[in-house]
Design a protein around this nucleic acid. Structure first.
Lengths: 255, 255
DNA sequence: CGTGCCAGGTGCCTT
DNA sequence: AAGGCACTTGGCACG
């Protein structure tokens, strides 16, 4: 193995302690699969009785204790806390201390199934983009994204055929149906929009239908013209400027 | 090893796939330490470029993808989602699908440092107790926790000497200062309370001082009597019944 | 450092 | 399923 990673299966408490020191020293990620008991005191207090869990200490000295179910860790400590490894009453004791606010997590470990120190080389960029729902919010708050003078009437309106993304009026008072797509608009999207517009045109022939998407497929564009509908280019990236959302998160270096 | 746990060091993609199937089949917790790339589409969209991370699939079919820093997973999927393991363009592809709302996480895995299926036997109870702040809220909403007829005046009041936890009046209209402690009240706490009471007694000799805590040290109790202050036993556990907080988390069975 | 606001919030309980 | 609410909320921007 090229990396400095080490894996121990069914290690003793002493071997696990040594591995933890090794991981902390070298800023590796440490995992323990172990039988443990956890006490927390700080902003609140908690007690977790004995059971087998996954204990993770990351490179930035954050701590996660995960049970075998659930998204959230049962106990944790944020990055930057101090670790102290010792032995107490026949157990391996891992103490994680946070300074401000003062919080302490004590993990008493009896047996271990697995202990690993992993070197995870990770420089991949993480980027978050918007959903259709977010595009809708951007348009509702900034109607000019559709066109100058556009005014939404209601956010959503139930029709026999389904739901309209955005219903509004243009500067001349014409009813406008807007259908949003986060990705390229295809024929299916055009048909969906046409169903809404057709229904409304029965009582009002001047109803307009606009599909707002980053781009439109060639066949969809042909269909669009035939049905007298319109296309407005609208990208999630542009919307993101109006509903600000984390759109990129460079890796922070550990100082 | 008595358990059904299995650990593979530097497994091939095929071996890892087999281990994942084994873990999913037997409701074990699966961990992969691997080089991967992650796409997410659902309420939002995200793209995580190649890098080494920890992938965890729990017994309840929740998914966590952790980088080597930070409390939060970079990508995840809540419990109960469906997994599909396949091979795609030279990578091991793990797809986790959530139905409502429809969300998909695709993990493309190239190399693996470690793959483990762990049987974590965990029936330990988890109990959370309250902070002083939470005890305060319990008392404000249920003043009888201090005594019958007690009525808080303001939540907090700044005095030259510091902050009063709770200021109120008793059934006879006497001013009452309440000092809360989450743990055993010591002499320091009594002195703290006395400073507030002394200040208020200057203009009103009938001011009462009550220290509310789970218990009180012997020396603190002597001091309390000498200063004509009072003790009211109040435990975080009792308060928890009035501000309901997770006070025990039985393991949910997987149906 | 505290304050305010957003989140793919999550989790828990109620209608 | 949808709504309300608390969280050791965590996280970021801002004063």
């Amino acid at each position: 193995m090229l990396s400095r990673s080490k894996v121990l299966i069914k290690p003793s408490q002493e071997q696990a302690a040594e591995l933890l020191h090794y991981a902390l020293q070298n800023q590796l990620l440490a995992i323990l699969a172990c039988n443990c008991k956890v006490d927390y005191h700080g902003r609140a207090s908690s007690r977790l009785e004995w059971g087998e869990r996954l204990v993770i200490i990351k490179r930035d000295r954050s701590l996660l204790i995960h049970r075998n179910t659930g998204y959230e860790p049962v106990n944790w400590q944020p990055p930057g806390c101090l670790f102290h490894v010792s032995f107490s009453e026949g157990n391996l004791l891992v103490r994680a201390v946070r300074k401000s606010p003062h919080e302490v997590v004590d993990i008493f470990i009896s047996d271990l199934q697995l202990a690993a120190a992993l070197e995870l080389s990770d420089y991949g960029a993480f980027a978050m983009y918007l959903t259709e729902e977010d595009m809708k919010q951007a348009v509702l708050k900034n109607p000019f994204l559709i066109e100058e003078g556009f005014q939404p009437i209601t956010e959503e309106r139930s029709l026999p055929t389904g739901f309209v993304d955005i219903l509004g009026r243009d500067s001349k008072g014409n009813l406008v149906v807007v259908e949003l797509k986060r990705e390229s608009a295809d024929r299916e999207a055009i048909i969906q929009l046409y169903r809404y517009v057709e229904h409304l045109r029965k009582g009002n022939p001047s109803v307009r239908g606009i599909i707002a998407a980053p781009k439109i497929t060639k066949s969809a564009h042909i269909l669009l013209k035939a049905l007298k509908l319109e296309f407005k280019q609208l990208t999630p990236e542009v919307c993101s400027k109006y509903v600000k959302r984390g759109e990129g998160e460079p890796l922070k270096s550990l100082t």
